[in-house]
Each structure stands twice: as structure tokens, then as C-alpha cells.
Design a protein around this nucleic acid. Sequence first.
DNA 1: CTAGGATCCTGTCAGC
DNA 2: TGCTGACAGGATCCTA
Length: 286
Amino acid sequence: MPELPEVETIKRGLSDFCLKQKIKNVEVCCDKSFVGPKEIIKGQKIIRFRRFGKALVVDLSGEISLMIHLRMTGQLIYDGAERYAGGHPSENFVDKLPNKQTRVIFRLNDGTLYFNDQRKFGFVKVLPTTEVMEDKFIKSLAKEPWEMDEKKFYEKLQRHKNAPIKAVILDQKIICGLGNIYADEALYESKIHPKTLAGKLNPDDAKRLLIGARKVMEVSINSGGSTMKTYVKADGTKGDYLEKFAKVFRREGQPCLRCGGEIEKIKMAGRGTHICPNCQKEDRND
DNA sequence: CTAGGATCCTGTCAGC
DNA sequence: TGCTGACAGGATCCTA
């Protein structure tokens, strides 16, 4: 669901709307979605938002933090004088809230922050601010594409030489931030077939892939993420990476914007995978 | 250690 | 209409 660009966009948006607000009350509608004691966050003020890969961290006063992961279908929606919504795209962004998928409700001074999550894979976790960096998930994350050294990336790929490259770049412990959309887009950008074994890639391939990953995510962040819909002053701009910038994701049957060939959808590592079979050749005899 | 598949959960859609 | 299976922007756990 939300990948790095979407979480980054949420981070920026919520920083605008929720910073310095006090959490007056917390209502947990689904126990599975909330980990830790909820009582201790009541009365605390939101002082900072941070992002680690696809995880959002909300630092509160009193040395308490919330770690939020949206996984596949999570959404964060702030409803105040204006509405700001991000995460899994759905019409719920404009629906009445709370709704059937609302799992946690934060009552703030000037509005309400809803954590919605259809499939309940995501969660909000309470932990001391000092322990955020020790959190098992956050600690395990690899660097993001912008911080990743090209050589180190190539070396990492060699350590997974028998796995298809798409599966490798979806692993947050290898490179952090890519999900199903941006993995497909980055591979298309760098003209690498997703089934190519990581060990078959040469240093130049690795470099192109890394640069491609940075590029597709930057474009998305600059357009407000692929799924963001911000309803600011009711006229609302809408994040539209998929419609405007995705070159292969959900474009099966349509022409490749580079060669005119037909985009195909295949299945890989249990995920739908989009390629231009002409630009991304599977067989490499080098 | 790596690689691959099942699994968590709810909802929607295509095809009988 | 009703059922059934496939699929969904993620990550973990288990097995070989």
C-alpha cells in the first residue's frame, strides 16, 4: 500500500495540520490495530513527525512516541476545519468518519485524526521516544535509495544472487522504501526485467536501478504521492502519480511510452508485476 | 545464511 | 441472485 512517497507526503501534510496539537483522547476500535498502553498518550502534545522507510513516527511530549505502519490498506485522515487524507486510496477520504474501517481515533484540540485500515495489517504502536531507534522493524531497515552507495548496493545484490531482482528490492532490509508500484517503475526505468536474478546484474545495472528508484520516488513525492488526496479548502488537489506518472503500473494492455510495445502484467513473488517485454528483456547472456 | 511460500484480514470483482 | 476464487501499493513466519 502506501510506499515511501505516500508516507512522506502524509508526514508533510500532518506536520502542517497536527503539529503542536494536544491529544485529548484516544479511542481504539480494533485491539489488533493498537499496541501498547493508550492511557499514557492522553494529554500529550504532538511535537514532531519522522519517517523511516514506510514507517511514520509521531513524537509526543513526555518522551513518548507512536510508530505507525499503514501496511497494505492503512489511511491517516485528519478531519478539522479542513480535511487532509493520505494512504490507501478510497472514497472514504471524503466519507463520513468514523466508518467501518476506522481502527483508532485520536481526538485533538482542533480536529480528529483517524487511523483507518481495511485489512488490519497496519498498526499504531506506543513506545518511549528513546526506544524508537531500537524498534525491531526500524532497526532492521536498510538505507533509502538516496543514502545507498552504488557499490554497496551492487555488493548487496550479489549476496542474493539466486533471487529475482524484484523480490530483492522489495526487501526493506536490502533497500528501503520501495513497494510494488515503485519496484515495477524503477525496473522499467532502468530497463531491467523483474525476473532477472540479482547475481546477473552488473555494477552498471545496479547503478541504473538505484538511480531509477530515486527518480520515480522523487517524481511521486513532488506530485503528492500516488494516493494522496488532500482536501484543503474544499477545492483540494489530488495526488495523482498513478494517473500522470506511472509508466507501467496498472497500465497492462496500454502502449509503452518508450517503445510503443504493449505493457504486460505478470505474476512474481506473489505480486502483480508490470513490464514492457520489449524494453525489459528477460534473457541476459552476459 | 538464502529462497520461496503461506499467512494475517476485509472487500471487490470476474466468472460461472 | 448467489457462490467461488483471485487479487490487493506489506511484512513476517516457517520450511527446506
